[in-house]
Amino acid sequence: MEELNPPQSATAEHELSNGISKLTLKEQKKLKRTPEPKLKPLQRSLELDPDAGNFLLPHDERYDNLDRLSESYRDILEGVGENPEREGLLDTPKRAARALLYFTKGYEEDASEIMRSALFDENHDDMVIVKDINIFSLCEHHLVPFYGTCSIGYLPNKKVVGISKLARVVETFSRRLQVQERLTKQIAHAITEALEPSGVGVIVKCTHMCMVMRGVEKPGSSTITSVMLGEFRNNPKSREEFLNLIKN
């Protein structure tokens, strides 16, 4: 009787076993104990968005809800009297779902971890300011954008942070459903907790589309919020210096 060939998987397993057995004992031990590389907590995989050319999107657990979100946007289109089957709207639910997940990517980021990744001991106690950091966020009341700038100042207490991390913290909190008052406070407290500085000042100036394109419809209006902590709250001279520097 003709002998049957072993299954392909069994053959591959046999070859792998033979290959390992040919290694020296030292090489076999090294192979077994080599750990898998661990990803950094903030490192994310990227996936290609087929609806936006080569635009790369961060992928996180929330993207598992993409189909459900897309169906919700389809219902919205029908609810406002549109036909989601017409050519211009065929891919709109999926595009809108992906956009919303990107607009709210701050939920997957940890501001304290961002700050801790670039803290440095430094004998410096003069004011540090980063001004006019762009902000794009979504009002949690109407889900329409508000946008503007954020200026940050702090008085170091023997410790400084990489200045790009201040912009990253602003991005983390603004890429969530927000109100401007809470956004300003979250930025200030995140810096205070990570750096333990002598003082922190944060000023946010934004235009709210819920006031521009609906409701009172007042183009040109802007909202300014501020949070002053430590020396910036208790010492008028420090506060005045900060306010003068961000104006000039």
Results as ranks from 00 to 15, higher is better:
residue 166 L to T: 00
residue 4 L to I: 02
residue 102 Y to S: 09
residue 191 I to R: 10
residue 79 G to R: 09
residue 14 H to G: 01
residue 222 S to T: 02
residue 145 P to Y: 02
residue 83 N to Q: 09
residue 239 R to Y: 02
residue 80 V to Y: 09
residue 108 E to L: 03
residue 214 R to F: 03
residue 168 R to Q: 07
residue 28 Q to F: 03
residue 151 S to I: 01
residue 18 N to V: 09
residue 70 S to K: 05
residue 79 G to S: 15
residue 18 N to A: 14
residue 197 P to D: 05
residue 184 T to P: 15
residue 218 K to M: 08
residue 228 M to N: 09
residue 117 S to G: 09
residue 172 T to N: 14
residue 209 M to Q: 11
residue 203 I to C: 07
residue 25 L to C: 05
residue 185 K to A: 08
residue 92 T to C: 06
residue 235 N to C: 15
residue 114 I to N: 06
residue 143 L to S: 08
residue 112 S to Y: 01
residue 243 L to Y: 04
residue 21 S to M: 07
residue 95 R to W: 09
residue 39 L to H: 05
residue 100 L to S: 14
residue 21 S to F: 05
residue 96 A to H: 02
residue 180 Q to W: 02
residue 24 T to I: 06
residue 179 V to S: 02
residue 226 S to G: 11
residue 91 D to M: 05
residue 102 Y to A: 06
residue 50 P to N: 04
residue 109 E to M: 13
residue 191 I to Q: 11
residue 73 Y to W: 15
residue 55 F to L: 15
residue 193 E to P: 07
residue 40 K to W: 06
residue 157 N to F: 03
residue 130 V to P: 09
residue 126 D to W: 03
residue 116 R to Y: 03
residue 185 K to Q: 12
residue 56 L to M: 08
residue 244 N to S: 15
residue 192 T to E: 14
residue 233 R to T: 01
residue 22 K to L: 15
residue 65 N to M: 13
residue 151 S to T: 07
residue 140 E to H: 00
residue 230 G to C: 07
residue 100 L to Q: 14
residue 111 A to N: 08
residue 6 P to R: 06
residue 169 V to T: 13
residue 15 E to V: 05
residue 224 I to N: 05
residue 146 F to D: 03
residue 239 R to W: 02
residue 149 T to D: 08
residue 173 F to D: 00
residue 8 Q to R: 12
residue 218 K to S: 07
residue 234 N to E: 13
residue 212 V to T: 13
residue 229 L to R: 01
residue 196 E to S: 10
residue 52 A to R: 13
residue 163 I to G: 07
residue 87 E to K: 12
residue 85 E to V: 00
residue 213 M to P: 01
residue 64 D to I: 00
residue 52 A to C: 14
